[in-house]
């Protein structure tokens, strides 16, 4: 929960730093509601990228969310009018919380899930607004504050480097990005890098598949067991 407020604040601060006020930051956290993608999106606010490119990047960066849904297909089935919001709000944090929190005895599971998801987004939006307003009052030199984004991705990469069953995908991502940056330049590097990554990972499927097979089975089993 604290984590969501803090990262939300960083996001708000960075939007403020582009010159847009807190209402824009709040609007994005309300309608997009996707941690990493919102940070990537700050780079698109200059208007230098085409909409098709933005759509493609969003799809690939958020692709993991498709798999969160798979775990919850049966669980969300009976949630009626709350179901669309549950699907909309299925972020990394909410997924992790839904997987790790036990429904208290005597409480309707659907209502409990809905409250978790809603509270998470309220924390996220609150953090965003606090960060943006804080940024607008900040009178010190903010040169370099954009590094917050790099620090966030460095933290995520470190976590994955330590816990993911194989480090090959991370290295492939790194190498493809560096090559794409040097060939296509800063503005256009994402799409070629994404295609190269998917192509290479596809080619390496026979080797890597066995390494992550355990991960997949273990993660889904743990999550289903909790539910």
């Amino acid at each position: 929960m604290i984590g969501y407020i803090v990262v939300g604040m960083a996001f708000g601060l960075l939007v403020q730093n582009t010159g847009l006020n807190f209402l824009w930051a709040g609007l994005i956290s309300l309608t997009v509601y996707a941690g990493s993608m919102q940070f990537v999106m700050i780079n698109f606010l200059s208007g230098a990228n085409g909409l098709l490119e933005i759509a493609l990047v969003t799809f690939i960066v958020n692709m993991r969310h498709m798999f969160y849904g798979l775990t919850f297909i049966n669980r969300f089935k009976n949630m009626g009018s709350k179901k669309p919001y549950m699907i909309f709000a299925l972020t990394d944090e909410t997924y992790a919380l839904l997987c790790s929190t036990k429904v208290p005895a005597g409480v309707d599971a659907g209502t409990f899930f809905f409250c978790i998801a809603l509270l998470n987004q309220i924390y996220w939006i609150s953090g965003t607004l606090i960060g943006a307003l804080f940024g607008s009052m900040l009178s010190l030199d903010t040169t370099g504050i954009e590094f917050t984004m790099t620090a966030l991705f460095a933290v995520i990469c470190t976590e994955q480097w330590l816990s993911f069953p194989t480090r090959i995908p991370a290295l492939i991502g790194l190498i493809c990005a560096v090559f794409s940056l040097s060939i296509f330049g800063a503005t256009n590097m994402l799409v070629p890098a994404m295609f190269a990554i998917i192509l290479i990972l596809t080619a390496l499927k026979p080797i890597l598949e066995t390494k992550i097979a355990t991960l997949e089975a273990e993660e889904i089993r743990q999550c289903k067991q909790q539910l």
Binding site: S36, F39, V40, N43, I60, V61, M63, R64, M66, F67, M149, T150, F153, A154, I156, C157, Q160, W161, F164, R167, P169, A170, L171, I172, G173, L174, C176, A177, V178, L181, A186, M189, L190, A193, M194, I197, I198, L201, T202, K205, L208, E209, I212, L215, E216
Partner: peptide, 24 residues
């Protein structure tokens, strides 16, 4: 195949985004 790509992609994409964030 889709399951495989979905599982293997996140560390690669995050590493790519790390580089993207320091592209300038």
């Amino acid at each position: 195949y889709v399951l495989y790509i979905g599982n293997i992609l996140p560390p690669a994409i995050m590493a790519m985004l790390l580089i993207y964030s320091i592209r300038f």
